[in-house]
Simulated assay, not measured.
Amino acid sequence: MPDTIMLQVTRYRPESEGAPTVQEYEVPLREEWAVLDGLNYVKDHLDGTLSFRWSCRMGICGSCGMTVNGDPALSCGTFLTDHAPGPVRVEPLANFPVIRDLVVEIDDFLLKLPEVKPWLVRDDDGVDGVEFLQTPEQLDAYKQYSMCINCMLCYSACPVYGIEPDFLGPAAIALAQRYNLDSRDQGAHQRLDVLATDAGVWACTYVGECTRACPKGVDPAGAIQRYKLTAAARTLLPWGKR
């Protein structure tokens, strides 16, 4: 195995450049190094002007999402040796405006997220000293969907979001399902008007790329299809509104 590997990194400053360019950097190829380590090597030793996001380096914060050799991935969990001998192409996440280099703007997601009320909705808010206990089975009903880290990989992989900017998107719908399935929540009926729309679950064509890209096994595609059944039962069938 060679001692180095080539990173082909997208560079772009929209305020001063008409189009992105690609710059090559040769970095050490070490068994324990992820793509993020290679980018940090570039930043520290080769080119301090390179811009990218990262924080925890442990696949928890979700901030280091990038496109690596064509696939959306967490750069902290994508190892250089898996792409040896290279080159490794590193680009910003697709379907998002680029702020600079590998940094994308996610304001659209942040504005849409509150629409699905991703928090516990209770009719009895303000009751002091009340515990809402759950069984292990009740926890299991929504636990998978609670693993979302808002990394935006599913939005980058989603072809619908790429052409339909009004689409709520996989992560927002999966997070809505997390609370719809929570035994302590009483807000499912409030989310129905948002989720059961052309911009909600009905926009999804079930390509499934969001689930494939998810680093946490959330299965947003499954969450969307599951909610389609719920929405149909509540809006089309005569007993659905009971």
Rank of each mutant, 00 (worst) to 15 (best):
M1F: 10
I5C: 11
M6P: 00
V9K: 00
T10W: 01
R13A: 12
E17Y: 00
P28R: 03
V42G: 04
S55G: 00
C56M: 11
R57Q: 09
M58N: 11
C61A: 04
N69M: 13
G70R: 15
P72F: 15
C76A: 08
G77H: 14
V88R: 01
V88Q: 06
V90F: 01
V98G: 04
R100A: 01
R100H: 08
D107V: 03
F109T: 02
L110H: 00
L110K: 12
V116D: 01
E131W: 07
P136S: 06
D140Y: 02
D140R: 04
Y142E: 04
K143A: 14
Q144V: 13
C148D: 11
M152S: 09
L153I: 01
Y161E: 00
E164M: 07
A176F: 08
Q177H: 12
R178E: 13
N180L: 04
S183G: 02
S183Y: 08
L192M: 13
L192F: 08
A196M: 13
D198R: 07
C204S: 03
T205A: 08
V207C: 09
V207G: 07
G208K: 06
R212K: 14
I224C: 05
L229S: 13
T230C: 06
A233P: 01
L236R: 15
P238T: 12
P238M: 02
R242D: 05
